[in-house]
C-alpha cells in the first residue's frame, strides 16, 4: 500500500476466527518473498483450513473452530 501515512501495526485476535491485521506490516512467505496484500485490512487464517492461506476464507465457521478463551 502506498499513499497513506505510516500506521502502527495492530494484530487483533478475533474470537473463534482469524487474526485481523491493520497497519504497516510486510507479509512474506517462508522464503522471504513478499505476499501481495490486496486490501488495507487483512484477515490471516488461524484454523489451518483456509483454501486461500495465509488469508482467511471463513472456513473456521464450517469446521466449528474454537479459540481458547
Amino acid at each position: 500500500m502506498t499513499g497513506h501515512a505510516p500506521q502502527p501495526a495492530t494484530i487483533e485476535a478475533c474470537p473463534n476466527g482469524p487474526l485481523l491485521v491493520r497497519g504497516d506490516v510486510e507479509l512474506v512467505d517462508s522464503d522471504g518473498n513478499p505476499i501481495e496484500r490486496r486490501r488495507r485490512t487483512v484477515a490471516l487464517c488461524r484454523c489451518g483450513t483456509s483454501a486461500i492461506a495465509p488469508f482467511c476464507d471463513g472456513s473456521h465457521k464450517a469446521i466449528g473452530f474454537v479459540t481458547p478463551s
Binding site: 486490501r39 484477515a43 486461500i52 488469508f55 482467511c56 476464507d57 471463513g58
Partner: peptide, 11 residues
C-alpha cells in the same frame, strides 16, 4: 469476496 468478506464479517 471469499477473501474480502472474511475480513468484513469480523469488522
Amino acid at each position: 469476496h471469499v477473501e474480502a468478506d472474511a475480513v468484513h464479517e469480523q469488522i
